[in-house]
Design a protein around this nucleic acid. Sequence first.
DNA 1: CATTACCTGCAA
DNA 2: TTGCAGGTAATG
Length: 293
Amino acid sequence: MPELPEVETIARDLATQLPGRTIVAVEKLDWERMVETHAPPAFQATLAGRTMQRVGRRAKWLLLTLDGGWTLALHLRMSGRVGIQCSNPSADRHTHLVLALDVLDEERGRFLSFRDPRKFGRVRLLEPGGLEALHTAYGPEPLSDHFHPADLSHILSRHRTRLKPLLLNQAVLAGMGNIYVDEALWLAGLHPLRLAAALTPDEGSRLHVAIRTVLTEAIQRGGSTLRDYRNGYGERGQNQNYFAVYRRTGQPCPRCSTPIERIRVAQRGTHLCPVCQPAPAPAPSVTPSATRP
DNA sequence: CATTACCTGCAA
DNA sequence: TTGCAGGTAATG
């Protein structure tokens, strides 16, 4: 599901609603494996009475800063959805976590919910040390002011792998997923099977621009909704209407009109324009070429 | 690096 | 019925 732009959009929405609100109780928790750090009684005991101070994001984690140095971290994985509701959503069979919030007035939602039909989503309740570990587990934030072309060049040069699996690796670069890797590689004109370390300096800087452009535009459009994703208000994103290649197999490339192809890379459906993204030279054969005169 | 597992729902 | 899905961790 959500990649960086979707999680960022949710975080910005929640940031207008949650700071200052107090968690009264865990109203529902019916999928215990969702909470990785605590058994349900300790989870409830630690959360109850805490006030939310800030909402942020690191990689694809949504971070709710609580008083006392705690952080509630939510990962939506493939089908997770987070939102604030005025009426209790606990009856929904796919809503596995509901936090009851303090009552302010009729307008403000009183329930913070995590819905996830596939049950891949995860929750961690972290002390300061745990938050540090979470931060160091991930690569740089691609939209940070500190992420320069040289940082990407360095990443590319020190990995002997192909572009797509590299960009999907959260420990190397945080926040890219299947959609935005395909889109960024198309924008940069690079085939997903190219070897990272073999890019020219120009190709590296094109990729740097492409990554930041694709992510920034997706945030401006409120993220991409394929099926499950909704922002903090339950609304769909619009970025899916602007995909160049993702899930556009057979449709014309926006740049050259060649039909988009779909291949399998790193076990993921991968979309590309065979003209704009020329395939790398095939792996060297074991025997020398027999086509010599 | 590839495969499998984790889950459910939906389209082909 | 099969295969596929926005992610990641755990295996050979």
